[in-house]
């Protein structure tokens, strides 16, 4: 991206980092001012805990979650590719992603880690979450497998008989 650096500043201090767009600087300064105003209040309680959560959330996502699901996806793609079934990737990826997404969002309920407070606060049974998630996952994977089988059958029917 081309950056226009004022000629004067380059001549005077050739090795200094350029400032960049003044409009952008002004905008970011306003943003930081507001973030700092709220941030002081956010950090008023458990300062270290909150800072850890915010920075940790970004790091955990970028350095753990993304690599993990990327590696899993790559393993599936390569495995199917090695078996000569690269075209099947989506039939595994789609249900796995959807099922994983539900698990990620509802992990406290599905894993049973909030069973006790959940039951005593709401008078509802916490037992069904794992079962329902497993059933939804079964439907997703089963549906995907059925769709693949149906497409394979249709492709086989349309193939000329000589290729059998």
């Amino acid at each position: 991206m081309p950056h226009r650096v004022p000629l004067g500043s380059v001549l005077r201090r050739p090795r200094r980092m350029p400032l960049g767009s003044p409009l952008q600087l002004l905008l970011l300064a306003c943003s930081f001012a507001l973030a700092a105003y709220a941030g002081i209040r956010l950090l008023a309680g458990d300062r270290l805990g909150v800072a850890l959560w915010i920075v940790g959330a970004a790091l955990l996502h970028d350095l753990v979650l993304v690599p993990l699901y990327s590696l899993a996806d790559r393993a599936v793609t390569r495995g199917l590719g090695a078996a000569g079934r690269r075209g099947w990737t989506l039939y595994a990826r789609v249900p796995a992603m959807l099922s994983g997404l539900l698990l990620l969002v509802w992990f406290p309920l599905i894993s049973g880690m909030v069973d006790e407070p959940y039951r005593s606060a709401t008078n509802l049974s916490p037992d069904g979450f794992l079962t329902r998630w497993l059933l939804i996952s079964a439907v997703l994977f089963g549906g995907s497998a059925l769709l693949l089988a149906w497409r394979l059958r249709r492709a086989a029917k349309h193939r000329p008989p000589a290729s059998h």
């Binding site: 709220a38 209040r41 956010l42 309680g45 909150v50 909030v114 606060a121």
Partner: peptide, 24 residues
């Protein structure tokens, strides 16, 4: 999900956190 593991009371964390996030 009643999983109160965050570092403090939900209301101030979610309210002030929203302003920090929205500023950015």
């Amino acid at each position: 999900q009643l999983d109160y593991v965050f570092p403090g009371s939900f209301y101030p964390l979610h309210f002030y956190g929203a302003w920090v996030f929205f500023a950015a």
